[in-house]
Design a protein around this nucleic acid. Structure first.
Lengths: 198, 198, 198, 198
DNA sequence: CATGAATGAGATTTCATTCAT
DNA sequence: GATGAATGAAATCTCATTCAT
């Protein structure tokens, strides 16, 4: 067994990571393969050795992004006990992710913009949001069943929860000085819990 | 902006309109000048006669977009009497705009994504959002002063209002079948008014 | 994977065979070393171990092709007794070769096309045709000497014989439905023998 | 109407001509767009302005080649009176074409080689050969009907006529010193007329 | 004012070849 | 002997921009 065999997955991950940084820096459609190669410290040809083409590479970056967010969310939510705590866990998870790495939401926004023109990306996005809403819905439904929340449509509130989180974080991404991210996070909790516990 | 007599302003407007449709159809960075020329029914050269380059053209499209939204918002809000009605007017204005022309939000999303890489666009975006929030803040402050709303920070609630609107409409744009847009609009009103009137 | 000694000649032949199939399938200048490696079931590196470069490999394929045709021709001709039978043996040998393996003529045509640009290949081709004509010429001269054929220039008729064979088989390769190959073979015999025995 | 409008067809023809020379010089698949641009004295971009891609350009070259040969053939044949003269006119037309411009057959050979891998080219080739054979068949049938030729299958002899012409010219292209082209032409006439008038 | 031919820089992608293991 | 990761030159094709008419 050649020792170089083991290099492949590591190299793939490195290229994905480099591409993520490049997208954050210059944007989905302004990056060249050369940018990525330079950033990853490999030759241009290597990228095509690991990824059939630019689109496949970008979809791989998106996949990793989503997987990271999902596992982060799941970890946070699992650690919480009561439904109200779980709702706060969702909010905290996303805001935390963005605070620790602003690039995260910048890249995601770029993918969203492109998803209206790329059907594969669109499907992946729709799917991710659906899972995201489903998680929130389940938690809210449990809260209602457990007497934590008043009677309401869990699916609708779930989309509002997601909407409020994303709407605030995007505003912040577009203009960091618009408001304080930590206070926006607190506000999100207040509004959603107020509505659920009214 | 070159205000020329005769056909010039009309031609300019036609090119901007055509560009808007092209962005909605293929996305900010996938359009060629030829696409725009074809769509506008003019020759490629003409576009460079009216707009120094592609970026200037795109910024002009963004300007028009914002001016349209602003005047639409202002009209709606002016027609409303009480602060609660004015809050609903903001919500209605945006949801209406998107319902009547889905392209509107698609193009806006595209501009947002690019604004993280284009400082002119970023400034324009920050400015627009600031005005947008300012409008909401003023209305909320009036509502508190007039006894319609409970004591709270008008600026923070304003950003939440905008965030909820944008977060829900983007979700819908990314997956129309996720939920019904009219019900999302109603939900927005409920959540915000509940929070303000609690 | 155990490296075997003495495996070299066999491996070489396998690679040549695989290359032949690839040329027939995709054409001389559309094949990649990867195609050949895949088809031969070896790694890319191995090909360069046995052949200095692509051109040397292709020339080896051509050599094998010619050697195969030559020995096939010689066997057929040796088996025939009289000059007319030997002429028919040449015709039969080539048509048979092509009928049993259409790829043969496809690959040969490809080599011919490239021989106008590759001097090594051109020389090899000229040489092969010269031997081919020489064989026919000798048979025809024997036929004249033996009273089987009328007085004529053996060299000229030899080139006509080769020309008619190749001209018909190429037509058939380019459009199999143009005519029946077996009847074309018979026609070749008729025309050449009629001319020689007139 | 801009005077430059008239330039387009001329430029197209120039590019086709330049491509023809390049194919003759370096071969179908060894030419780069840069070679063609240099040879035509235009920039690389211009070629893509007139031809969608390399394949479309090559097919245009093939079209012109065939059109030229067809009209040359038709002119020659029309000028001849009796069927035997018309048969000789076909032979003369092709041999003349090649004698006056050796490139002609070199390029055609290249196209044939590629036609086994390109379905558009293959269809065009099959079609051209069919028309070519049809012309010869008609003339032979007229000759039989007019008592010039003995009873025989015109279609079969037509393919033999074409085969003999092409088979000899290709031999000559591959090795000019193999025989004299003028004598090969005479030989073709002798063999075919002898067979038809036997 | 308008056209569209022309440019050429630059992007993606392919691939023969090398070489460390 | 054998592998496959890596290279980088070179190819095709795109496109904003210019400019002669």
């Amino acid at each position: 067994m050649s020792p170089k065999v083991g290099v492949a997955p590591k190299r793939r991950a490195e290229i994905i990571e480099a591409t993520f940084f490049c997208i954050a820096l210059k944007g989905y459609s302004n990056i060249t393969m050369q940018d990525i190669a330079d950033s990853a410290g490999v030759s241009k040809g290597v990228i095509h050795y690991y990824f059939r083409n630019k689109e496949e590479l970008f979809l791989s970056v998106y996949d990793k992004l989503i997987r990271d967010l999902d596992s982060h969310l799941a970890r946070k939510v699992d650690r919480a006990r009561t439904p109200p705590e779980k709702v706060c866990a969702i909010i905290t998870a996303v805001f935390e992710k963005i605070r620790e790495n602003k690039k995260f939401q910048v890249v995601l926004l770029d993918f969203w913009a492109h998803s209206t023109k790329n059907s594969t990306l669109k499907a992946a996005n729709a799917n991710q949001y659906a899972r995201y809403r489903h998680l929130a819905k389940k938690i809210i439904a449990e809260g209602i069943a457990g007497g934590y929340f008043r009677e309401c449509d869990p699916a609708r509130v779930a989309s509002a929860l997601i909407g409020l989180i994303e709407g605030l974080t995007i505003q912040w991404i577009l203009d960091e000085k618009a408001f304080d991210l930590a206070r926006a996070q607190k506000l999100t909790e207040e509004i959603i819990l107020a509505f659920l516990q009214k």
